[in-house]
Amino acid sequence: MQRITISVGDQLSADLDTIRAERGYQTRSEAVRDLVRDGIDRWQQETEIAAICVGNLSYVFDRRIRLLAKRLAEMQHASHDLIVATTAVRLDHFHTMESVLIRGPAAAVRAFADQVRAERGVRSGAINLLRVDAHEHHEHHDGADVHVHAGLAHLSPTN
Rank of each mutant, 00 (worst) to 15 (best):
R42Q: 06
F94G: 15
I52N: 05
D133H: 08
V54W: 00
A85H: 11
H149P: 03
I127S: 03
E30L: 09
V8Y: 05
I65P: 03
L72F: 04
D10H: 13
Q2D: 08
Q76I: 04
H138D: 14
V36G: 11
I6R: 04
S124Q: 14
H154C: 13
D114F: 01
A14K: 14
E74W: 04
S124A: 10
H137W: 11
D114S: 10
V8T: 13
F94Y: 09
R103S: 07
W43T: 11
H137E: 14
S29L: 05
G125L: 00
L82E: 00
C53L: 06
Y25L: 09
A106L: 14
I19N: 03
S58G: 11
L82A: 05
I40F: 02
R117E: 06
R37H: 03
H135E: 12
L72R: 02
L129I: 06
D81A: 10
R64Q: 13
D92C: 14
E22M: 09
E48Q: 14
G55W: 00
A134K: 04
V132D: 01
V122P: 00
R110S: 11
E22I: 02
T27Y: 04
H95M: 12
G24Q: 06
I102K: 00
I52L: 12
L12N: 13
A111W: 04
I127F: 01
D38P: 03
V8K: 10
I83G: 00
G121P: 05
D81C: 10
Q11L: 10
S156R: 07
L16T: 07
F112P: 00
V109P: 01
A50T: 15
R37Y: 03
I40H: 08
R28M: 05
A118E: 06
G9D: 14
D38Y: 13
A51Q: 08
K70I: 03
R131D: 10
R103A: 07
V84T: 04
A150E: 13
R64C: 07
D62S: 06
L82D: 01
A108S: 11
A78E: 07
R3G: 03
D81M: 05
A106T: 14
T47S: 10
A31N: 07
L68V: 03
H141M: 11
G125P: 01
R33M: 07
R37P: 00
D15V: 07
S156G: 12
A111C: 07
